[in-house]
Nucleic acid binder design. Structure first.
Length: 884
RNA sequence: GCGCGGUUAGCUCAGUGGUAGAGCACUGCCUUGACACGGCAGGGGUCACAGGUUCGAACCCUGUAUCGCGCACCA
């Protein structure tokens, strides 16, 4: 390539390089490699999923780690895949079925329905995988896994059998979170408490033993009165102490006003409501426990879909639970026992998937008593696994400390079937029973059948449990069951896990326990928790708000690299990110800036990949740049050490844009027709080569295009070694700093007099050091000088600008009268005097001089001297102006 | 209720005890030999508030306010 286009056009090169990387097998991990291993398993996105900005952030970080590891000499495995996502996927296919064929899954039957889900998966699933490729993700696609792959699925079932044999998995009738829309049980983690504005209804119940005497009960759920089997008070509550053991009459249903006992239970808060609690063991967790303690009967008045059943009475049967609430309040009012309705805000658990209130429901489910909880806590506490940021350690520990058994069965069809078999076929076949899976379970528990827990069917006459497992019960094996023995030996435990803090319990914690239980090792060494991406108002990105930009649109507009770099630059460790498209614009601009810097270099001739600046006598600017490159490499390496991705991006941004483009390239423009040419070009090539390497993890497409286009090598950047922090061959440059600063002062002066920045000026200077004259060509360029000449004393009618390289004089003839300059100088003198006063006050303080570290005091003294010198220069300038 | 995190320039955010920073936005000048997706210069901040520790606090401590996020069986 001899010429580059004027602007970087990502769309023209991205696909080309991605294909090239894949052809060369650069993403593929070889377990037999002699190189040290580095591994990451992808948090498997839902097979139904499409790429979101959250995915972009998460996967870009993983790609950065993977590419950086390759460059630092590791054999890298980044293992990709997708998750079968039980509820989400089943829902998608059911919706399609209803829409296109007006059928439910029950119309098709289990086997046929599952066939349809697989068809859907093959046709529409895994869009996100193609999108990850557009983003540039360097996953080992030969190893793409799916949580329902045959081998993986078998492992999931084997783990179930194993944990069952160990007595950690058991079946029991418990209070679970029931989703009336998905018609399945959920784990506690899938329930999101949301504040709800409702009412607290007060109603009276009559004491059976004392007719005419009433107790006042407060409830938010009057629709469950029909399921009440007691009324409870706190035994320590003086208001009700004599009433325990007496009875009240339940008002609903009106045709069956049962007699309920009054029980005493410590769970009742007497500060809440009236201190009298209605006890509904079938529909509330606390009530259920009270029921157990007092051996109360359980009346289940709800159908699985959240409608009332016949036990609720003829007025309610068939009503939805929320309609029933209105109806119940009406009935209480009709009966004249409704005392008041007061507005009340409380938290109600919502189903994460279906976004409807979950129903606490007594049902037969499979539960897991977590293995290796103590070991998991220790692993994080003792830093066998490090969390970044580390504050999540506390959250993790707190969860494990209070951990509850995990409800792992789901009343779905799509997922890993529970490997439990029952002998007795006549009424149990799920194919021939009613449409409600919950009903099936009831039948099972009632039959005294023989039960076996094993993967394969024990033979004819055995029927498998109709439930499937929670999706997370398969993903918790992801870190090790995705690898064959050779890969495990090389790449396990994995090096890092990158994920959002929202799945710390769902996934991270459980994977640690599974890893410890089944490999005897932690599954990963480091966990990096990303922030959550929000919109400019700080709201979470969501489909319904329409505030979630499509990353593919952003890639089309700004390039994958622009998106990656722009996003990463604003993603500080562990903080949520307020997304603004402007940030991506800046990422794109940065890519273009580097592109043009390289374009400029190419205009001076071909690059030398082996350029070695130490072979040349270097300008002060070149030495300075090399020193800054060295500092940047260190900053970047430190960033990788600490997972500070935005720091790395910022360090590279500052170096490329500020140090390299704004300063060095501008300074270099005076060198091309001078003896400095060779040294300057060598420095430029040396630095560009390293910039491309350092930047490659963040902007892989751009850097690969430039690497190859400029002729640095025929290998991929991924295969070439990461730059070492070289101790700079020449000491860092105070002279260059002084020259840059002087240019800045001079331009400021020019601006003060409204002199257009392109007007050529006949500058004069009285230099402060010998070396300054050697830099006249570069300085003249900086100053946009018509000429730059030395003068011994201040010329008449000129504005003076004291700098570290000497006093610069700007001729003012024909531009402005000298009185204006006098004013300007006076103003500047006043400013400097104020600074001197500030430092002097500090140094006059004995306590400061006596107590502060000597270095700090010395620093202040130095500063005072600098200001004094500047003051004298300014005063001299003023006096000479007045004299001249 | 308990815990965690945030509060610094108009906006988004860096900044772990010693002169308050960056990018964007804004103002002015500039299409100068890569880049207007650009260059140069400039204006703009009682570091949420109140106490405390210290010679010295954006930074450490205590409390308050406020926003966000977890956890929690007040129905």
């Amino acid at each position: 390539m001899s010429e580059l286009s004027k602007a970087y056009e990502p769309g023209l090169v991205e696909d080309k390089w991605y294909a090239w990387w894949q052809e060369r097998g650069l993403f593929h991990a070889d377990p037999a490699s002699p190189k040290p291993g580095y591994s990451i398993v992808i948090p498997p996105p839902n097979v139904t999923g499409v790429l979101t900005l959250g995915h972009v952030l998460n996967n870009t970080i993983q790609d950065i780690l993977a590419r950086h590891a390759r460059q630092t000499g590791h054999e890298v495995l980044w293992l990709p895949g997708t998750d079968h996502a039980g509820i989400a996927t089943q829902t998608v296919v059911e919706r399609k079925l209803r829409k296109e064929e007006k059928m439910t899954r029950h119309d098709l039957g289990r086997e046929e329905f599952l066939k349809r889900v697989w068809e859907w998966k093959e046709k529409h699933g895994g869009i996100i995988i193609r999108q990850l490729k557009k983003l540039g993700c360097s996953c080992d696609w030969q190893r793409e896994r799916f949580t329902m792959d045959e081998a993986y699925a078998r492992k999931v079932q084997e783990v179930f059998v194993d944990l069952h044999a160990k007595g950690l998995i058991y079946r029991g009738k418990r209070m679970v979170n029931w989703c009336p829309v998905s018609l399945t049980a959920l784990s506690d983690e899938e329930v999101i408490p949301k504040p709800q504005k409702g009412y607290l209804y007060h109603f009276r119940v009559e004491l059976v033993e004392r007719p005419g005497t009433f107790l006042e009960v407060a409830t938010t759920r009057p629709e469950t009165i029909m399921g009440d089997t007691a009324v409870a008070v706190n035994p320590k509550d003086p208001r009700y102490v004599g009433l325990i053991g007496l009875h009240v009459r339940r008002p609903l249903p009106v045709e069956d006003q049962a007699i309920l006992p009054i029980v005493g239970d410590d769970a009742v808060e007497f500060a809440f409501g009236t201190g009298v609690l209605k006890v509904t063991p079938a529909h509330d967790k606390t009530d259920y426990e009270i029921g157990l303690r007092h051996k109360l009967p359980v009346i289940d008045i709800l159908n699985p879909d959240g409608t009332m059943n016949e036990l609720a009475g003829e007025d309610f049967a068939g009503l939805d639970r929320f309609e029933a609430r209105v109806e119940a309040v009406d009935k209480l009012r009709e009966l004249g026992i409704l005392v008041k309705e007061e507005p009340h805000e409380n938290h109600v658990g919502f189903s994460e998937r279906a976004d409807v209130p979950v129903e606490p429901r007594l049902s037969e489910q499979w539960f897991l008593k977590y293995p290796k909880t103590a070991e998991a806590r220790a692993a994080v506490r003792d830093h066998l696994i490090r969390f970044f940021p580390d504050r999540w350690e506390k959250v993790f520990d707190h969860w494990l400390e209070n951990i509850q058994d995990w409800c792992i069965s789901r009343q779905l069809w799509w997922g890993h079937r529970i490997p439990v078999w029952t002998k007795k076929c006549s009424v149990l076949s799920s194919q021939c029973s009613g449409p409600d899976p919950a009903e099936n379970r009831t039948l099972k528990t009632e039959s005294p059948d023989e039960v076996r827990c094993q993967v394969e069917s024990p033979g004819d006459g055995w029927v498998q449990d109709s439930d499937v497992l929670d999706t997370w019960f398969s993903s918790w094996l992801w870190a090790h069951e995705t690898m064959e023995p050779a890969a495990l030996a090389k790449f396990y435990p994995t090096s890092a896990l990158v994920t959002g803090p929202d799945i710390i319990f769902f996934w991270v914690a459980r994977m640690i326990m599974a890893g410890l239980e089944y490999t005897g090792e932690v599954p990963f060494r480091s966990v990096y928790f990303t922030g959550i991406i929000r919109d400019r108002q700080g709201r979470k990105m969501s489909k319904s708000l329409g505030n979630s930009p499509d990353p593919l649109d952003l890639i089309a507009k700004y390039g994958a690299d622009g998106l990656r770099f722009g996003l990463l630059r604003i993603a500080p460790q562990g903080q949520d990110i307020k997304f603004d498209e402007q940030q991506i614009v800046e990422g794109r601009n940065f890519c273009n800036k580097l592109w043009n810097a390289c374009r400029f270099r190419l205009m001076q001739g071909a690059v030398d990949p082996a350029a070695d600046p130490t072979q040349h006598e270097l300008s002060i600017f070149a030495s300075d740049l090399l020193a800054k490159l060295d500092a940047t490499i260190r900053r970047v390496n430190d960033g990788y050490e600490a997972f500070r991705f935005s720091d790395i991006a910022q360090a590279l941004y500052d170096f490329v844009w500020g140090d390299f483009c704004d300063r060095f390239i501008e300074a270099s423009k005076a060198d091309f027709e001078s003896p400095r040419r060779a040294g300057t070009l060598a420095t430029m090539d040396f630095v560009i080569l390293r910039i491309l390497k350092l930047l490659h993890p963040y902007t892989p497409f751009l850097t690969e295009e430039l690497w190859n286009g400029l002729g640095f090598g025929s290998q991929s950047l991924m295969e070439v070694a990461w730059p070492e922090p070289c101790t700079s061959p020449v000491a860092p440059g105070p002279r260059a700093e002084a020259a840059y600063a002087a240019a800045s002062h001079a331009r400021n002066l020019r601006a003060t007099y409204n002199i257009p920045s392109n007007k050529r000026i006949a500058w004069k200077i009285s230099p402060s050091a010998d070396w300054v004259e050697q830099e006249f060509p570069t300085l003249a360029l900086f100053l946009c000088a018509e000429s730059l000449t030395v003068c011994d004393s201040a010329p008449a009618g000129a504005a003076a600008c004291p700098t570290d390289i000497g006093i610069l004089y700007l001729p003012l003839e024909g531009i402005v009268d000298a009185s204006g300059e006098a004013k300007r100088l006076e103003a500047e003198i006043a400013k400097v005097e104020a600074e001197i006063e500030k430092v002097a006050r500090k140094l006059a303080s004995e306590s400061f001089v006596n107590n502060a570290p000597p270095a700090v005091v010395a620093d202040h003294r130095q500063r005072q001297q600098d200001w004094m010198r500047r003051l004298i220069e300014l005063q001299t300038a003023r006096d000479s102006l007045a004299g001249g």
